[in-house]
């Protein structure tokens, strides 16, 4: 008896969990995505479109789910939990690549001379101490001379010669020079990005002068004779902060505005005369603990002296303020 037919029929009935395609499916478990690169089978697509799409989708999902089950999972109260691997499909970036920074003056010089950039280590070897010390900062190598407990004074030096002070001034001057050069580099980078040729610059200047003169009449240019081919004046374009700024900086500016507002309000309140007068009704209520002015007037028994003295003290304060 040949059972191969029966077996084949049984196997066909059982939908296999293994998906085999001509080009293997691309599975990205991180994004839960399956990409099918196979060519659409035109015959079966034309024959029954719904069925074909359904089977393609089923294959994809089957492949994805079997990948998910092959991932390591942990058992939790709510059932097995699988953490997805990081996605491996590269997505295009949202923003354009940042523009390269214009080179500093040193970088220009170094590239002209063919000088390679050398990275300075943060620590340097100290021969005397026989250990690594910081190049700068606290107890840095650059402050070694200043922090010595004994200083050499050159022969025939002034009375007010202070070697520590001299070293410190020299170090501070180096820092200031570096900062100055940094600012120069920055301004050069700014100007080079908006650099215009001489002729273009002159043209802009003339345009600006013309625009100023056009609105410098009694009617602010409204009833002037129009020249032929004269264009309408363009206003200044408004500029706004970018929508997507760091929240920290935005918060800071907002708080600054707020504190400025507070300051204005306080100043305004101080200017209004008679506004600092105390609220008599409220003062009486707090002093008498809500019993009213009559309670203040009448002295109370043995310990009455205490209460009345407190009342009169507060009253005195109020009068002083007024």
């Amino acid at each position: 008896m040949d059972v191969s037919d029966i077996l084949a029929a049984h196997a066909a009935k059982q939908i296999t969990t293994r998906v085999e395609k001509e080009i293997p499916l691309l599975i990205d478990a991180g994004f839960l995505t399956v990409t099918d690169l196979n060519v659409v089978d035109k015959e079966s697509y034309d024959a029954d479109r719904e069925d074909y799409l359904l089977s393609t989708a089923r294959d994809g999902i089957q492949a994805l789910i079997s990948t998910l089950f092959s991932l390591p999972s942990t058992h939790t109260q709510d059932g097995p939990l699988t953490s997805l691997p990081p996605p491996n499909t590269p997505l295009p970036r949202a923003k354009p690549l940042p523009k390269p920074k214009p080179p500093t003056k040193w970088e220009q010089f170094a590239s002209a001379k063919g000088i390679q950039k050398k990275r300075k280590e943060r620590k340097v070897w100290d021969e005397e101490k026989q250990e690594w010390v910081d190049r700068w900062g606290r107890n840095g190598k650059n402050k070694q001379g200043e922090e010595q407990w004994i200083q050499e004074v050159p022969h025939g030096a002034d009375v007010d010669h202070d070697p520590v002070k001299n070293l410190r001034n020299a170090r501070k001057a180096r820092v200031a020079k570096n900062e100055r050069q940094r600012l120069q580099n920055e301004s050069r980078a700014q100007s080079s990005s908006s650099q215009l040729p001489e002729r273009e610059k002159r043209k802009q200047e003339i345009d600006r002068t013309l625009a100023t003169t056009r609105v410098s009449t009694a009617s602010m240019g409204r009833f002037d004779k129009q020249l032929e081919g004269e264009k309408k004046l363009k206003g200044v374009k408004r500029k706004f902060e970018p929508t997507e700024t760091s929240v920290e900086s935005e918060k800071k500016t907002n708080l600054a505005i707020l504190s400025k507002l507070d300051g204005d309000a306080k100043r305004a309140r101080r200017d209004v005369p008679g506004d600092d007068a105390i609220n008599v009704r409220k003062a009486i209520r707090t002093v008498s603990k809500g019993r009213g002015s009559a309670a203040l007037a009448r002295p109370v028994g043995g310990r009455g002296g205490k209460t009345s003295s407190r009342g009169s003290k507060s009253g005195g304060r109020g009068r002083g303020k007024r």
């Binding site: 706004f240 505005i257 309000a265």
Partner: peptide, 24 residues
């Protein structure tokens, strides 16, 4: 877009009239 400084001042002044220091 974010508010300019003048606009922020107007908005904050209005809000501060109701909630005062709580604006922070």
């Amino acid at each position: 877009r974010p508010l300019t400084e003048e606009e922020s001042k107007l908005v904050f002044a209005k809000l501060a009239n109701f909630i005062g220091k709580n604006l922070i």
